[in-house]
Amino acid sequence: MRKTYLARRNALLSRTRFTWGASALLFALFAVALRVAAPNVFFAAVAPLERSAAAATRSVRAAMPRSAAGLLAQNDVLVRENAALAAENRALVQKSVDLLALLDATSSAPTVPGIVAGVLAAPPEDPYGSLMLAVGSRSGVSEGMEVFGDKDIPVGTVTTVLAAQSRVALFSAPGQKMNAWVGQQQLPIVLVGAGGGAFSASIPSTASVAIGDAVYVPGPGALPIGQVTRVDRSPSSPSAELRIAPAANPFALAWVVLRPGTQVLQSALSCATTTRP
């Protein structure tokens, strides 16, 4: 006679559910252990995944549909910018030819000083508002180096260096504060990182700061870091709140340049942060 019986099952966990949950936990614990024990090996293994993910994210973002009017306006701006850059390029090439002839030099085009680094991970994938770069101590990177995006716009400083990767704390990360100035009157302000690449600052309500005013941080000369996009004034408050959009969008950074830290920019970090004692 055929015997039937029911296997005893745990009311909370079945063997199947436990397997997937346990596998996920074991995988995560293994990742943590590898990160602690051998960080260079861990990040070397993860770097190709992060690079692919970052490239896929950028291509998806570029392919996302936008309004026709917005695209047309953007196209007009880009066409004008392209024409201006082409004219400037022709003038610079001619100037370079003239100078080389004058100096009787045979060198090639001047190189931009600094270390060029690819960005492996950036916000919003990185939840802590930092950048992970594909260069480390082997390429000459050291803690405290300043990081610049397109058009020499400062974006952060190097805080952690491994053999082949390094981590950058963005100036716009929540909690970061730095001295800056805004507008034609060069009104001094304290820039506060608001996350997502944005900044905020407080000014006296009587100050004449308008939307579109540029914000600068000290550096060789003045380094543009953003532009005022909103001014919140309240009749009952003695101060006004500025919202500042970054000049370099950290979400779209693919390449950055690292340069040795200058005391000028470092000293602008006015308050103690998680990156500075």
């Binding site: 996920a24 936990l25 995988f27 995560a28 614990l29 990742a31 943590v32 590898l34 990160r35 861990f42 993860v46 992060e50 991970a121 990185d126 939840p127 802590y128 508002g129 930092s130 992970m132 805080t159 952690t160 981590r167 704390a169 990360a173 998680t274 990156t275």
Partner: peptide, 14 residues
């Protein structure tokens, strides 16, 4: 997922 995120992105000075 939280542990994996910390392994990837956490740093003591962040």
């Amino acid at each position: 997922c939280g542990l994996l995120a910390e392994a990837l992105y956490w740093a003591p000075n962040i």
